[in-house]
Amino acid sequence: MKKRGKGIASIFYPTGMSGGGDPSNALIKMKLDGTIDLMVGSIDIGQGCKTVLAQLAAEELGLAMEQVTVINDNTDSCPMDTGTFASRVTHSMGNAVVMAARELRQEILELAAADLKTSPVNLTIENGEVKIKQSPDKKISLADLAGKATFGMGKILAGRGGYVKAPTAKDEETGACNPFATAAYATTIAEVEVDTETGQVEVLQLISVYDVGKAINPMLCEGQIDGGSVMGLGMALMENLNPYYPGIDFQPTSFADYMIPVSKDTGKIIAKIIERPSTTSLYGTKGIGEMTANSEAPAIVNAVYNAIGVRITDLPITPEKIIRGLEEK
């Protein structure tokens, strides 16, 4: 018989390394035509940090995406970043990039103010031009400004940014500490169908809502939730490096025996984003890169319990565990 059930899981996850002390530094320099080089040591492992960091720099400097060159490809040119892990890049390096862009922006505004004979506070940058807010026809393009600064003054237009969550002190007796900057929250609802004859569990649907603080690029946030949902499903139902744990016999050596989900295994994935901005980020961001794979396994386990009354306490859920659970009932 096939029985259906629903289960939920609600989770949180810290942004940045637990314990702090994980710096991110960024540099921006302006080229002669007003376009910029953004130098960051963050690694794009697929999550899309080159895109997000370029968006933040472009936003602050009134540039189009096409005017930002991201340089993240070597340790000589880029300032230090701790690395791409601990869901830290959008928050930590994002802060550093915004700081760098604001330093450069201030430099631009001061030069433009002298040129337009006004005060920097009266100026704004839009579409690659610095304009007087009250009379936008009085303006100078970033290209002209960069040219004047370089050839007329021998000046480099550049900005530096650096962010670190201060390392926490820790009380060894109680563990009391302030280990992370902020945390993101999520809830997943899983719907499953359990075949009580074969013990097979099929995930019909995973609905996830993630609080990202602020979505710099909603499409990329959804991408993390989509991918995390399926990795979490793999953890729930398939993946196991030691099928005879704690022994190491019959350890998988290929994708033929270490099963990860394929397109037919996923069921329907629904990813939604809400935004409750963090006070620790200049744009309110939080990191969800890792936690997106955490909410599915418990939701699926709870859904299986809801369907057949068998509570799985050790992962993965195998057909054998389902059948044994049903027999013991």
């Binding site: 109680t174 902020t182 929250y185 809502v209």
Partner: peptide, 25 residues
């Protein structure tokens, strides 16, 4: 939290409400 870290911008309840809504619950 258990380590006496004070939380800001908490959104657990909000994600639960949205998830229920998305699932028609």
């Amino acid at each position: 939290t258990a380590t006496r870290k004070t939380l800001e911008s908490v959104a657990l309840i909000e994600t639960m409400k949205e998830a229920a809504k998305a699932a028609g619950i």
